[in-house]
Amino acid sequence: MIQVQNLSKAFGEKQIIKDISIDFIKGKVNIIIGESGSGKTVLSKLMVGLMEPDSGKVIYDGNNFIGLNFDDKREIRKQIGMLFQGGALFDSMTVEQNIVFPLSMFTNMSEQEKTERANVCLNRVNLVNVNKLFPAELSGGMKKRVGIARAIAMNPKYLFCDEPNSGLDPKTSILIDNLIKEITEEFNMTTIVITHDMNSVIEIGDYINFIFKGELWWKGNSGEILKTDNKEINDFVYCSTFMKKVKENL
């Protein structure tokens, strides 16, 4: 479980994250949704220590991450898998090298074991025969999937996915969503998915946190989000004609 307590962050004058407190539950898919620019990515970066918060705590299974020194942070980070919004694949390495890189760094696996592990991870995201390609040779959706494969290579306890299915076709998108759900339950991970895709929210969201202008505006589950009468949520969820039609038939 990851607990965020009273987290705040400003860039200059602009308050981006305003006193957010959320408990992210173990073995469940915890979703963060919100408009573009509402602070979702910043919140996730504060949680993993890529940005320093102005105040507040981030507690990983009882240990406050904020204020730890580099070596203690490393011990927690080794248990974190993260999919970046832009993929962030190492472009000087092949797909396979990307995936096995943390394994080479922190384990004593043989080359063959590492290749096997890479293949297991790639199979899970429905990619085959891409081991020797470089990131520049992949399509946007393939990069995303390699990003996920890399994030799960170390069997993380905590999984962060920033927009795992933006830029994917609907079919692959659902496949990735289901994959995230499956591994979350299988390995009892604490998973945090950042998205603005309502499909994913309904498909896999166990707990949903709606961020609005840097504040935690609403939380609940996927059934509740469709029925709430909170104005900002309705504006967000039912902005498209398609969703409006869905609502009429609900």
């Binding site: 980070r77 080794k78 970046f84 832009g86 694949l89 190492f90 890189f101 943390p102």
Partner: peptide, 17 residues
């Protein structure tokens, strides 16, 4: 380039200096 494409962040998240 590694910095602006978040590759450095990715290294940090893995626990690598």
């Amino acid at each position: 380039t590694m910095r602006v494409t978040e590759q450095i962040d990715a290294l940090e998240i893995m626990g690598i200096n």
